[in-house]
Design a protein around this nucleic acid. Structure first.
Lengths: 248, 248
DNA sequence: TTTACTTATTGTATTATATACACTAAGTAG
DNA sequence: CTACTTAGTGTATATAATACAATAAGTAAA
């Protein structure tokens, strides 16, 4: 991955909401926010934030987001989408945020624009990289109070994810390359917090010619093994219908 | 409208793609880019750009976008949506852009983040305000080369508009409050560059209980006057179906 | 080997929506 | 009253949505 030699821009950052699905639930990647060891600030309790960084001069914002995700996961080939930008005055004005900004030598008055990206992957494809700070998966439903305005950013990312998933075949980004139909159904049930009828769900998938059955079955399960499938974006692009599937 | 006393931030701007529909075609609001009169730069030919401005310190980015649109149109109650942010290095590096930036005393090296909004309105509801620069409606299909990276921004706005219109009832934002079904159909035909069957289109609209017939007909037309309708967002919110109208 | 257990897989009937297609109705203008 | 223009409507067929329950294919334990 690109290792920019140029300087970090101080007022443009990207925040990445990295969603990881683990066959049961949707998780989000968080990093611990601490002060550097030599900072004498005993009242600063470490807490958690989304992953993000400022952009290098000379780097595009998408490159910056890709770099952030790559540095933590080692993955660069994933679904990554810019969903919203956060630039309001007051977004970094909580006392704890101000304290942290000062501690790393930033001007806490400076207005920082943060461009939000969300990324999708299957947690089983990832081993988290230690980048000098603790990193963890947290179930989205159990995320507590985050640093900065990151709870807001996470919420907006969830909205964007749900919206996109309603109309584009991106749920596959949360599954391993080979998956079962039950796994696929469960992804949608988890994210939309609902249940579907199995037969009707499969009828629907059946019509989608880009969900392709493989000559392979699940292994190592203590019950009837399920058929494995893969997603083909190529077939999707070729077979998708245009229009009149729209709302007025 | 808010008249900020604070200073303009130099590196955060909003660009507004103001779409106006005029019963025939989709237009976009452009402003002329000139040098101030006392600038001795005879080789700078005026050209056109989208409408935009930097944000005031203390102002949210949505407020800034609302202000920009209000100042040109006098309208503040319209559909306005953040669709994408443009912050790549090199987006303002064309010689003409550099010349212009220098002429207004900006550092042309500074990296400027521009947050893109698009807005919808019916041109007949608007009388353009003279803000010291020429302003005009241009048919989207006839837009030539714009200043800065505004052709790129316009294209992305069109993409966002089409996408949103496929799944949300926002087409009404381009029509006057009372409209005919033919007008509604034409909006969609223009924007998606296609034709629909009149009977099928009306059957579809008929099922949408939030498109409400009024006790009123078109006036002053030299043929059978059409029934007028209105859109009710309230009814829409109450009657919209949840889920399973999704793509896997 | 048999039984219990678990998850995978499948079909039918009903209703709603999509699509293709052409004629009549209600105005104005001359 | 005739010509012109746009508004408004119905039917038949195919596809998709929805509600609903029994059988199949494995493993694990008796």
């Amino acid at each position: 991955m690109l290792e920019a030699v140029s300087q970090l821009n101080t007022y443009i950052s990207v925040d990445c909401v990295v969603f990881g699905y683990d066959a049961e639930k949707l998780n989000v990647l968080l990093v611990e926010r601490t002060l550097s060891d030599d900072e004498p600030m005993p009242d600063f309790q470490p807490d958690w934030t989304l992953t993000g960084n400022h952009v290098y001069e000379g780097e595009t914002i998408k490159e910056a987001a890709t770099r952030v995700v790559f540095n933590l996961t080692g993955i660069s080939d994933l679904y990554l989408e810019q969903f919203k930008t956060f630039a309001d005055p007051g977004r970094l004005l909580k006392p704890k945020d101000q304290k942290w900004l000062r501690s790393i030598g930033k001007n806490p008055e400076e207005r920082v624009v943060s461009i939000g990206y969300f990324a999708l992957l299957a947690t089983q494809d990832v081993s988290l990289k230690w980048m000098g700070r603790r990193v963890k998966w947290t179930p989205v439903k159990k995320v507590g109070q985050l640093g900065f305005d990151h709870n807001e950013i996470l919420e907006q990312a969830m909205d964007a994810l749900r919206n996109k998933m309603k109309h584009e075949p991106i749920g596959f980004g949360l599954l391993p390359e080979k998956f079962t139909l039950t796994q696929l159904q469960t992804v949608y049930e988890q994210i939309f917090d609902t249940r579907f009828d199995k037969r009707n769900f499969r009828k629907k998938v059946n019509r989608m010619k880009y969900v392709i059955p493989l000559n392979e079955k699940q292994k190592g399960v203590p019950h009837k093994p399920a058929q494995l499938y893969m997603f083909s974006r190529e077939v999707f692009e070729k077979t998708k219908k245009e229009l009149f599937d729209f709302v007025i």
